Amino acid sequence: MQWPVEGPFLRDQLLRLPGTEKPSAIDKQLAMGEVWLDLNGLQGDRVADHRFHGGPDRSLCHYPVEHYAHWRKLYPQLSAIGPAAFGENLSTLGLDERQVCIGDRFRWGDAVIEVSQPRSPCSNLDRRHSTRGLARHMATSGRTGWLYRTLEPGVIELGADLHLIERPCPTASVLRVWRGFVNEDVNDIELAWLAGLLPLANEYRTRFRQRLDSRRRQQDQGALF
């Protein structure tokens, strides 16, 4: 299976978020030629805060084209938004968080990439678009997008399609993992499964394991008294 791609998008110089002194690379622009993708991301794409962006488990951000219609309807002031508006490096029509699974491997150009985690929306989206509550609505709706790790670096040309080459975890949809992440009531069996989902970024697996361990300690303490 394959999908046409909007992108690659990148930001080669940091800009200030509107109304702040905070630098950001969220305002991506279409690359003007072929781009090299390595383990840390697209060559020339800047990262303002390495604590939350970039790195081996976050080399690329993907956001579905079709979600933009929802946001334009919900926020009329965002009538002009489209691909790259939310800081993604690539966008497609026909793939969303219900269909894409953690561990999915795609070939994009000469590179091979693997879905590593849901994207965690942050308040920079609100500032970038002067729209309070945008990131919160993204999180509650599950329209988060997702991130990749790079397995095989390579050249990405404009117009390169995205080809699905492997799906080792067909039940591990991005939406399922995100719901487990934000839902404090998820059961212990689900938490244990999420913590053991090997292709999932270690940051997420650690959080799931910590929640599960915390519950078990509370259960053990309750059994003593």
Rank of each mutant, 00 (worst) to 15 (best):
P64G: 06
D213F: 08
E166C: 12
R216A: 04
E157D: 10
K22A: 13
A192F: 06
R98F: 14
G19D: 12
I156H: 09
V65W: 12
D45Q: 11
A172I: 01
D27S: 08
V115K: 02
Q221R: 14
Q43F: 05
R107L: 07
I102R: 02
L191Y: 02
T131Q: 05
H129Y: 09
L14N: 07
V5F: 10
K28V: 09
W71M: 11
A84Y: 01
R127F: 13
M138P: 06
E97N: 00
L14H: 08
L151G: 15
Q210P: 03
D126K: 01
A172E: 11
S141N: 13
L194M: 05
Y75M: 10
L194C: 04
I26V: 03
G7K: 10
H129A: 13
L197P: 02
L78Y: 13
F208R: 06
G54F: 05
R46T: 00
Q218A: 12
E157H: 15
L198V: 15
G41I: 01
P153M: 03
F106S: 05
A135R: 04
T171E: 14
R16L: 15
T171L: 12
L42I: 06
P18Y: 08
S91F: 05
L14P: 10
E152Q: 15
R176M: 06
H137A: 10
R105K: 14
P170I: 06
V174A: 01
T131D: 08
V186F: 06
L200K: 13
I26A: 01
A80D: 14
F225A: 11
Q218E: 15
N202H: 13
A25L: 09
G180L: 06
V47A: 07
G154Q: 07
S123H: 09
L191P: 02
I156T: 01
L175V: 00
L125T: 05
L212I: 09
N124L: 05
G19E: 12
G94D: 03
E157A: 15
E88N: 02
L10D: 03
L74V: 06
R136S: 09
L175H: 09
I156F: 13
E114Y: 03
G54E: 05
A111T: 03
C169E: 14
N202Q: 12
A69L: 12
G180A: 01
A25M: 01
L90K: 02
D96Y: 04
V100L: 03
A69M: 07
D213Y: 07
L162E: 01
T206F: 01
G7R: 08
M138I: 09
Q13L: 11
L191C: 04
D110P: 01
Y148K: 02
Y148F: 15
H67P: 01
R107V: 14
V115M: 09
F181K: 13
L158C: 07
G94W: 14
R217C: 08
G87I: 02
V115D: 00
H163Q: 11
V115S: 02
Q219G: 10
